[in-house]
Design a binder for these strands. Sequence first.
DNA 1: CAGCATCCTAATGGATACTG
DNA 2: CAGTATCCATTAGGATGCTG
Lengths: 123, 123
Amino acid sequence: MRQEKIVDLANSENCPVRNVLDRFGDKWSTLILLVLGRKEPLRFGAIHRSIGTISQKMLTVSLKKLEADGLVDRTVFAEVPPRVEYCLTERGKSLLPVLQQLVDWANEHMEDIRASRAASGVD
Amino acid sequence: MRQEKIVDLANSENCPVRNVLDRFGDKWSTLILLVLGRKEPLRFGAIHRSIGTISQKMLTVSLKKLEADGLVDRTVFAEVPPRVEYCLTERGKSLLPVLQQLVDWANEHMEDIRASRAASGVD
DNA sequence: CAGCATCCTAATGGATACTG
DNA sequence: CAGTATCCATTAGGATGCTG
């Protein structure tokens, strides 16, 4: 495997990390991907209920971003009342293992982090 | 069969993912960890130059958060002019492989994502 | 049901000036 | 050098009301 530059940090345009973080660093995108990774397809309302605290607006804009990035597929059924289903694309699925690693790490270290934070008096 | 909860998404207090994302979902923390992962220890100014576009203020507050979370160690040397060195803690190092996976994924998929985004007319 | 449009507030983060 | 302190612009995101 080749060891080239990990990131070109000085140039945000060409830095994949910056670019990707700018997308998934928001409050909801990662969560939506994880929800869909757990069970799909899901309807708009089902995702909404799964996350619970997300506002309708943010769910809408987040899903649109994910769709624009080719991570989520949106299917509209010509029914009344309307039904819209969301599922992961192959690209979206390929991100899941990485996110799962993050989840695992979070589960493993959250308590310690919480303790450190409390001890430092920062929050 | 009952569905196993990966994350308790409805409860942000008890959800490690939410909790961790709230910390690293910011614009700079992940970048700082990656910089230190590449080479440490680093002085304040060195990190500043490595990232380039970060403001002094944001570097300061981000480092303080990472320190409070026990991911980064801060060492002050009693010299004139002052020297402060930062390095990763064991906990911080344990996050690196996960972040590296994210970097790898980003490198691999960024061009496609960029293309999808452009095609969708969103940005 | 699945949204869009609008308004509004809170948080993020950049610029600048100053200090031990 | 390694920060603080302050001010200000931008953005994220919530609340509410309306529509096909």
